[in-house]
Design a protein around this nucleic acid. Sequence first.
DNA 1: AATTAATATTAGGCTTACCTAAATATTGAG
DNA 2: CTCAATATTTAGGTAAGCCTAATATTAATT
Lengths: 163, 163
Amino acid sequence: MSKPAENEFRTVRGYQLKKQNESGLTPALEDYLEMAYRLCLEESYTRVNKLSECLNVRPSSVSKMVSRLVKLGYLEYDRLDSILLTEEGRITGAYLLERHNIIEHFFALAGSSNPLEETELVEHMLSSSTVLRIQTLLKFFEENPDIHRRFKSFRDRTVFPET
Amino acid sequence: MSKPAENEFRTVRGYQLKKQNESGLTPALEDYLEMAYRLCLEESYTRVNKLSECLNVRPSSVSKMVSRLVKLGYLEYDRLDSILLTEEGRITGAYLLERHNIIEHFFALAGSSNPLEETELVEHMLSSSTVLRIQTLLKFFEENPDIHRRFKSFRDRTVFPET
DNA sequence: AATTAATATTAGGCTTACCTAAATATTGAG
DNA sequence: CTCAATATTTAGGTAAGCCTAATATTAATT
């Protein structure tokens, strides 16, 4: 029985405030950087309009967010119109993408009906150490296909899939 | 009719807007209701000040949030100062608490260093079907202690706990 | 070079969801 | 009836992130 008597409960907001991000990245900034990273993997640079399309927001929003990412040292401008990753941006971007993939992979394993959406909502909240542990869980199933198979069958017997 | 390529990316906010909760509950409202439910388990009713203490917010905040929960039909006033759960409140509160426990349990399984905090941040984002599936994962380990043991050993071999 | 089209930025405002302090109101105990 | 505890209202503030509309910049075409 978990007793609420401990005074350590807070509302979501309370926890969010408690957790100050050393990276300076807010959830939305992480999304922008993650997307910039994806796009730079393909073309080595990206642009405001491209990001705008891919994230379904207006260019003006991108403009503002990109300039914040520049200030934070994750992005830089090339000729004033192409956006590049800095070294820090590459490192962090790679982490964000990996984190994304791990979590999406996890939701897929669990059998979520919309892994992408749930990932987008959740990824920003997890500490890197937890992400690592979730990855470990995935690795465990990967390295033990027999157990993986057993779990999948258990899962599908237990949960009735909708849709 | 082919499904719209729903692989469209959005920012967190985009997803949050997309997902309008039929229950009318925001993350913070869920926290208030969950706590009210916990407290009512112990004493059958609760109060503004009690909630205020337990959630580390000011009474005036509680007052406002409670009145929202009353409007939504989850709580009701008794003698103008004791707060009770409605039937709907009991059902939903029970769900919220169970969800909380499942997720916290999951983080504990994974080996998170702060399961409570991470749970509070994440719980509001997950669909009930995914919660169910995570529960299934837990059940799988519960019902297969051998596998559970194997995983724990694998986990502890793989992840070096920080101090 | 001048015009137009494409791009990007700025300015300013809006919304949501909280939270707070301070003033006021209510309740209930003695 | 009065004091203390409790609750509510009022009025205000913050933070993040988005938008529109106006402006500025760059690139492309003639």
